[in-house]
């Protein structure tokens, strides 16, 4: 079955944080049964914007890197005793909120640090690639829909728009982690 991919073009990102807040707004206080428990008020950012600064003023290079869950093909987070994390046929990796026991091992196993603990519910949580929105017919996650600059391409790997981007050879963030992320980037 074709799997989802997200391709982010850091050359087009202006650092506006729309993706970060759109995700927050979708999930804080809202439950999507079977897919995601509500996000707590504070402390969790399922999409973040990393600011990478290189060089010395004024010869500086700044890159903004949008960072959701990488939905890895080798999801090292899944290797935990409560077996609450699984990878779907469409590539999306989900933490089952009903099964997760909040031991936080998944949080520590993730090299990208995109898993968060919810002390009220005693579970860990992370980006779902908006599986809950895709299930009701939306074509893209909330972060992608909120981006004004066309940073993201999102879809199944046989989608023509996705294939067009893939042909330009985007690469992952930290490929050396070996987790085979499904989020790829064009770098500045």
């Amino acid at each position: 079955m074709a799997k989802y991919l997200m391709i982010a073009d850091t050359r087009r990102c202006i650092g506006c944080e729309n993706c970060v807040i759109a995700c927050k707004d979708l999930h804080v206080g809202n439950e999507f049964k079977g897919i995601a428990a509500p996000q707590p008020e504070k402390g969790q950012w399922w999409m973040t914007l990393e600011e990478k600064v290189e060089g010395k003023f004024p010869n500086v290079k700044v890159t903004y890197i949008p960072k959701p869950c990488m939905q890895c093909d080798n999801p090292v987070c899944a290797n935990i005793p409560d077996k609450s994390i699984s990878k779907r046929d469409d590539g999306i990796v989900l933490i089952d909120p009903a099964k997760n026991t909040g031991t936080m091992q998944d949080m520590y196993l993730c090299p990208y640090r995109v898993i968060f603990y919810n002390p009220d519910l005693n579970i860990t949580q992370k980006c779902t690639f908006c599986a809950e929105l895709l299930a009701k017919g939306d074509k893209v996650p909330a972060c992608v829909a909120a981006c004004p600059m066309g940073v993201f391409t999102f879809g199944l790997e046989d989608d023509p728009a996705v294939k067009a981007k893939l042909s330009q050879n985007p690469t992952p963030l930290h490929p050396e982690y070996g987790t085979q992320p499904r989020v790829l980037y064009f770098w500045k």
Partner: peptide, 20 residues
């Protein structure tokens, strides 16, 4: 109010998406 979403034709800034 449970969610705020932008319009494609005039995408509001992040702080407005946080208006809840």
């Amino acid at each position: 109010i449970t969610r705020i979403m932008p319009y494609d034709v005039a995408i509001a800034p992040a702080y407005q998406l946080a208006y809840r």
